[in-house]
Simulated scan of single mutants.
Amino acid sequence: MDVWLEAALNGPWGRARQPGIPVTADEIVADALAAADAGAAVIHFHAYDERTGRQRDSYEIYAPVIERIRAVADVVCCPTIPFAGSGDAAEPMTPAARFAAVEKLLAAGLIEWSVVDPGSVNISLADDVAAGREGFVYANPESHVRYGLALAAAHRMTPSYAIYEPGFLRLGAALHRASPGVPQPVYRFMFTEQFTFGLPPAEWALQAYLRLLREEAPAAPWMVAGLGVDVEPLIGAAVRAGGHVRVGLEDAPLGCASGNTALVERAARLIEEAGGTLATGAQVRAAS
Rank of each mutant, 00 (worst) to 15 (best):
V186R: 14
G167Y: 02
V245R: 08
G228L: 13
R214A: 15
A47F: 11
I271E: 09
A131I: 08
N260C: 11
A217H: 14
E165V: 14
Q207W: 04
P183T: 01
A252Y: 12
A41K: 07
M157H: 02
E215S: 13
V224T: 15
S160R: 06
L149A: 04
L210F: 11
M190V: 14
R98C: 14
V229C: 04
W222Y: 15
G255L: 11
L151H: 01
A268L: 04
I21M: 09
V229P: 05
G181C: 07
G119A: 03
D37P: 05
R285G: 10
A8G: 09
Y147Q: 04
N122Q: 10
A282F: 08
A108N: 03
A205W: 14
F45G: 03
V182N: 02
A252W: 13
V245A: 12
P159K: 09
A100H: 10
S288I: 08
G39I: 13
D128E: 08
A108G: 01
Y59F: 15
A154W: 03
V239N: 14
A89L: 10
E203V: 15
L213W: 06
A238W: 03
R266H: 10
E215Y: 00
A274L: 13
N122A: 10
L151N: 01
F136D: 03
A25Y: 00
I123P: 01
G248I: 15
E272N: 05
F195W: 07
A241R: 15
L234P: 13
A162Y: 09
G242A: 12
V229K: 04
V229G: 06
E193K: 11
A97F: 00
P218M: 03
L151K: 00
D251K: 00
T80P: 05
Y209K: 07
I21Y: 09
L106M: 07
M223F: 02
A108Q: 03
E91V: 14
G20I: 10
R285S: 06
P159L: 12
E27H: 11
P95C: 09
I271P: 07
A178S: 08
H176R: 09
G109H: 05
P22S: 07
P185R: 07
A139R: 05
V115W: 03
L105H: 11
R170C: 08
S160W: 15
E142T: 13
Y59L: 06
L33M: 05
E27L: 14
A38S: 14
S120V: 10
G39W: 07
E215I: 00
C77N: 05
S120M: 13
E142M: 08
M93N: 09
D88E: 10
P185D: 02
S179H: 00
G236T: 15
G172S: 13
Y164W: 15
A84K: 02
R17Y: 14
R266N: 12
V115N: 10
A97C: 04
W204E: 13
R269E: 13
Q283I: 13
I66K: 12
A268Q: 12
A202T: 15
N260M: 09
A154Q: 14
L206A: 05
L263G: 02
